[in-house]
């Protein structure tokens, strides 16, 4: 009898949490590997339109971004609400595109220079005028492979 009583007083053994750090570390490594830090701070408001025929960008290292949209709220006092082009971290004009393209090309290996995709991240409410100007400018500097950044959707609606 006394044997049983002894057992009872011990109660249920605690669940071992020794493996918890391992599990957490596994998750941690997963996120460390998959993470990509945002390189630029957006100064323009960009809500990309939705489309059904989107393709995934294959090589992230071969993509350069051009942002077009109206300045974000906190910058509207200084820069107004007219849509602007943002290259890297600064506002730019279409004349700066030439230099930007050259700099981006310089960053890559020589063999890969013609494979750069220029991803246009344009706000959906922007008028085509500024986009067309950028496109014409890109043609002039022979940066022809472009991507109209848009989100995947199943159906477009009017």
């Amino acid at each position: 009898m006394s044997k049983f009583r002894k057992n009872n007083s011990k109660g249920q053994p605690a669940i071992s949490t020794a493996a918890l750090p391992d599990i957490v570390f596994m998750l941690l490594f997963f996120f460390m590997v998959t993470t990509t830090m945002r390189e630029t701070t957006l100064k323009v408001k960009v809500v990309t339109p939705k489309a059904t025929e989107v393709e995934k960008m294959e090589k992230k290292s071969l993509v350069s971004y051009i942002y077009i949209g109206e300045p974000i709220k906190s910058l509207q006092g200084a820069f107004g609400t007219a849509p602007r082009i943002q290259l890297n971290d600064v506002f730019a004009t279409k004349e700066d595109l030439f230099q930007f393209v050259e700099m981006e090309k310089d960053k890559r290996d020589e063999a890969e220079r013609n494979m750069i995709t220029w991803s246009l991240k344009v706000d959906q409410d922007t008028k085509m005028g500024i986009v067309t100007e950028v496109k014409q400018e890109m043609r002039k500097v022979n940066a022809l492979k472009i991507n109209y950044s848009s989100k995947k959707t199943d159906r477009i609606v009017d």
Binding site: T34, E55, K135, K145, N147, S149, S150
Partner: peptide
């Protein structure tokens, strides 16, 4: 982390 891979309509501009 930002897991979003960029998607979009790939086009080629005329030279």
């Amino acid at each position: 982390t930002t897991m979003d891979t960029d998607t979009g309509l790939l086009r080629r501009l005329p030279p």
